[in-house]
Design a protein around this nucleic acid. Structure first.
Lengths: 259, 259
DNA sequence: ACGACTAACATAGA
DNA sequence: CTCTATGTTAGTCG
C-alpha cells in the first residue's frame, strides 16, 4: 500500500532509529516469500551493524557492514515498527533485536511481505525519481497501445508508483488515465516526465513535515484527486471515479484523452 | 480460455436464453477481428430470429432464420453475458438487443474476440468428439515427430482441445505428454482415440450438473491432474508440473513415454 | 521445409 | 501488491 513517498520517509525514519546498532538476534521462521533459508538470513544479519536503509522502488534495502544486504517488500499490508525491548508485535514476520534492547519488526497481517538476501538490483527498471523524457519516449514507442495508467503502475517499466500516485501524476500532467501511451504528443510526454518526480517529491516533503518518523501505514488525505473525500480537483474539475486497468481510478475531465 | 466442455455448456445455456427471439438491434463497431464490415454484420442479424446456437471446435455458431450464421471465437479472455435491458457490460464487443428487452453481449477485455459472418466450415479439422482411431493413425504417420501434447493443442489437427483438457486426456490414456506421436503403438493410439471423447464428455456432464447456465469463464477445479491444488492423480501418482510445448503441463510418471 | 520456440496482449484470481 | 495462467498468430531460429 505505501508508495514511493511513504517508503522514502520510512527509510529515513528507520535510518535514524537503527543505524549503527548491532544486530544481536534475528527472529524469522517463514520460509515462504524469501529467496533464502531462514537460517542463512539470520546468519547473514546476526552480529552485524546496519550501515544504511535505502528505498529501492517500492522496497527498502537494509545494508549491513559485511557488504551484504536485505531487501524487504511490504506488499499490500506490511509495515515496520520499532519497539523497546522484545514486546510482542502482532503479525511479526522478521524481528531484529539490537544490542541496546531495541527491536525493529517487519510485520504483515496478510503475511505476503517478501524478504530477499543480497538481491540482484542490476536488472531493475529506473526509479520513478530518475525517469526522463527520453526514457518515456523510448518505452512508449515500444508498446504504443498500453493504457498510460497501466504503464505507470508497471514496476518493470518504472519503479515506485502505485495506484494513488499514478492518479495524482496523471492529474498533474493533465493526461486522462485511459490514454494510450503511443498517442500522447511529445510535449505532453515531457510534461509527464516532469510531473512524475514533481508529484512524488512534493508528497515526500509533505509527509516529512506532517508525519515525521512514520514507519508504517499510508497517508492519503492530502491528495488532490485520488481522495474519496474530495468532490472536485483543486482547480474545480468534478472528480470521476472509475475502474481502469482493474484499479479504482480518480480523475477529472480536465485531463485530455489521447486515443 | 474455455475449451470444448465449457463451450458446449455455453451453447446450451445461450440456446435456452435466446432461441426464437427476434434481434431488434445490433451494436458492433469494431472493425478488427471480423471477416465482414460492421454494417454488413448488423444488417444480416437485424430483424432475424436465432434458430440455433452450436459449438464448432472452440467457437460458437449462431444460426439465423435467414439461413445465415455468425461464428464467435472467445479467444483468451472473452465470454457471453445475457442481461435484462441495455445494461452496460464492460468490454462489450457485440451486443444483440432482442424484442423482449433482453440482450446478449459478447465481451472481451483484450478485444481479441473474433466474429465471422457466414464462415466456411467445410475445411475444418474434425471436432474432438468425432476423432477416430483411424484418423489419429493417419495424422501420426504424416508427422511422426510431433510431440503429442502439441498435436492435441493444434486446432488444425483436432478442434476443441486446450491446454487443460490435453493434460487430462493424456493422463487418462496413460501417455506422457512428451511422447512423439509416431512412436505411440497402435493399441495405445486406440486408447487415446477413446480417451479424447470420454474425458471431454465426462467433463461436459460435470459442468451441466454443477454449473448449469454458465456462459463465460471456466471451471477447472475438478480436473484430475491439470489442477494446481492436486498433489497426486486420483490413482496416487505424484503430479509433475513442467513447461511442455511452451505450455504449463501437469502429468505423472504413470504415463508412458514413447520416444 | 519443417518443427519448435518466442513475443504480444489485459485481466482475474491466488 | 505481485505473479501467473491463458489462446492464437506471426515471426524467428535451427
Amino acid at each position: 500500500m505505501p508508495e514511493l513517498p511513504d517508503l522514502t520517509v520510512f527509510a529515513e525514519s528507520l535510518q535514524k532509529l537503527v543505524l549503527g546498532k548491532r544486530i544481536e538476534r534475528v527472529v524469522y521462521d517463514r520460509k515462504q516469500q524469501a529467496n533464502a533459508e531462514p537460517q542463512a538470513l539470520a546468519a547473514a544479519m546476526q552480529g552485524r551493524k546496519l550501515t544504511a536503509v535505502e528505498r529501492v522502488g517500492k522496497e527498502l534495502l537494509f545494508k549491513l557492514d559485511s557488504g551484504e544486504s536485505v531487501l524487504i517488500h511490504l506488499m499490500l499490508t506490511g509495515g515496520f515498527r520499532c519497539s523497546q525491548r522484545q514486546e510482542q508485535v502482532a503479525f511479526a514476520v522478521l524481528t531484529l533485536l539490537f544490542n541496546d534492547g531495541q527491536a525493529l519488526v517487519a510485520f504483515d497481517p496478510k503475511g505476503w511481505l517478501k524478504v530477499a538476501l543480497n538481491p540482484d538490483l542490476s536488472e531493475r527498471a529506473p526509479d520513478a525519481l530518475d525517469v526522463t523524457r527520453e526514457y518515456l519516449e523510448g518505452m512508449f514507442d515500444k508498446k504504443p497501445k498500453t493504457v498510460v495508467k497501466s504503464f505507470l503502475l508497471d514496476q518493470q517499466s518504472i519503479a515506485g508508483i502505485g495506484n494513488a500516485y499514478a492518479d495524482e501524476i496523471l492529474w498533474q500532467a493533465k493526461i486522462s488515465p485511459k490514454s494510450l501511451v503511443g498517442k500522447i504528443p511529445k510535449d505532453v510526454v515531457a510534461k509527464l516526465a516532469l510531473a512524475i518526480p514533481s508529484v512524488l517529491k512534493q508528497a515526500t516533503d509533505y509527509l516529512r513535515k506532517h508525519h515525521p518518523g512514520i514507519t508504517a501505514g499510508e497517508v492519503r488525505d492530502f491528495l488532490a484527486v485520488h481522495n474519496p473525500k474530495a468532490k472536485t480537483s483543486p482547480s474545480g474539475g468534478p472528480i470521476i471515479v472509475e475502474q481502469i486497468a482493474s484499479k479504482k481510478t480518480y480523475y477529472t475531465d480536465e485531463q485530455i484523452l489521447f486515443k
